[in-house]
Design a binder for these strands. Sequence first.
DNA 1: TTGTACGCGTTATCAG
DNA 2: CTGATAACGCGTACAA
Lengths: 342, 342
Amino acid sequence: MKRISIKDVAVKAGVSIASVSYVLNNKIDSRIGKDTIEKVKRAAEELNYRPNNIAKSLKTQRTNIIGLIVADIANPYFSQIARIIEDEANKIGYTLLIGSSDENPEKFEGLINMFCDRQADGLIIAPVENTEKYLHKLQKQKMPFVLIDRHLPKIEADNIQINNYEISYDVTQYLINNGYKNIHLVAYQTMLQHLLQRTKGFTDALEKHQLLQNKNAVLDIDKDNIDQEISSGFNHLFQKNNLNKPDAVFFTSNKLAVSGIKKLMKLGINIPKDLAVVAFDETEAYELFATPITFVRQPLTTIGTKAVEVLYAKISNHTLPIQNIILKAELHIGQSSEPKLN
Amino acid sequence: MKRISIKDVAVKAGVSIASVSYVLNNKIDSRIGKDTIEKVKRAAEELNYRPNNIAKSLKTQRTNIIGLIVADIANPYFSQIARIIEDEANKIGYTLLIGSSDENPEKFEGLINMFCDRQADGLIIAPVENTEKYLHKLQKQKMPFVLIDRHLPKIEADNIQINNYEISYDVTQYLINNGYKNIHLVAYQTMLQHLLQRTKGFTDALEKHQLLQNKNAVLDIDKDNIDQEISSGFNHLFQKNNLNKPDAVFFTSNKLAVSGIKKLMKLGINIPKDLAVVAFDETEAYELFATPITFVRQPLTTIGTKAVEVLYAKISNHTLPIQNIILKAELHIGQSSEPKLN
DNA sequence: TTGTACGCGTTATCAG
DNA sequence: CTGATAACGCGTACAA
């Protein structure tokens, strides 16, 4: 019941190990006779031979493994992307290894090391803050990788992103066009570029219309304390004696949106009558909310397929120039942001 | 810039390859001198040596890889479990490889083969219908595995499940106690045992109270057509001239529940005034619904930790007896199933 | 402590 | 032109 090795096949077929290897890898540039090919194929078939990937990897220095680092595979945004990447990777004969960083640089480093130790052929990475040095290390050891979702300004690498600034600007513009004048943003307290761009797009749009009355239009939330901070932030914003309550809120992520909408429900705020709501990213949670939520939809499928495509190209040819792909997100309009009455 | 091998360390330390191997694996049963140990450790440190897992695996026949097969990693139920298993596996030095079967036997077989080819040390599997032969094959080649979420009746193997029958019986009993008399079940059209048990628990509870008026109390939905079938089923159940409309619905999965609740919203049915609702499995979607949903919560963390624990034990000792662990799910009571008025 | 066979394919080189 | 031989990738663990 032990594994069948190439040697067993060679013996059974009555040929050399090398011939078996050539036949089974289709490296038969008219070098091997037809009868040999037949014998080898039959023997392999009968013995139900499966090549030992480990031995093959040891020799070829390729594992056909792609590593994926996300913040958290339990987050629907990442699990959906993971699923797409899994399928794409399988299509081209690769296996996907997934790791969750929890936005924690130490865990991130651990994952990088793990993938290097396992000798992944390439990595798809949603990078964490303050991890530039680990990415530089990857570059030094010529490990191909492509960044998704985000990028780090000091890193020159292939990456797939969306037009964070523009879509955020457009969303804000859209709310303004719909008559909203006191729009607030709920964002993460972070230095991650893609999130800062969402904030910038928002404030730039407000400024253009001279609607940036106070710098408190942006609520920065600690990612480790979402529920509490949103709760207290909203308590403050929507307290009775606040004469200048927001008339619209824009959440920059699905987690923020879910937490925020829950709080709004508790506060008994009617959407969109009392308050318009727009969210970033899709989640099935929006579908059960009484008012269909307007949200920014990222092209997840394209992100996943492009990531694999670019990575695969880089694996095949390390000298390829860096690609910086920016995909367009689209605004899916629901009723939570209908034109303001009065 | 090439990889540092054990040989490089040996040369730098001025000792043999064997010594390096012993030192770095802490197999120093007073066999190696202190100075040698020091020299080796310093050399390894300075060269930043990382052992080659592939070479190690080739020799030891162990990969420290655990494979996980789920129906779909994009489904929150599985992505949450995957996350827990990932963390548990990492704790004991294992890496997790994830594959999605889409409930498709061919894909399932492909994943099994892939994991075998990659020589995973063990597998955690949510098995698909009609895949008994592949599992038997695993047993024949002595690949350790543990089944989760479901089990196949003809397979004798370690498995972790929940008390599907009892919890389903209890939920139904609970609805009856709350005054509901025309309770319907929305289930999958399937032969999967764990789902059949949910249905059986439901019908048994109804029968006990002589409430199983018609065999139409169970709506069997094709998993590939959820939205359409629920939609037409509900259209039929809730049509105006139906004099015997349901007063309660129990969904046996989160996907069914989300789809069903969306349809109920469209139909303008008030929950729980017109209809009580209970769902299986947790999802953040329930939280944005106007009425907090009563649902069955599975002990995901325990499922994940137990799965890894049992698998690890089996990997360490193949002769261990089979474990059949049944965990208790609990009913999380919201307002969607409040005692019936009148 | 160390030399070395071994795990199992791949591929350059050599022989027929 | 066809097929075999053997070095190699890199650790592990037994024999010496």
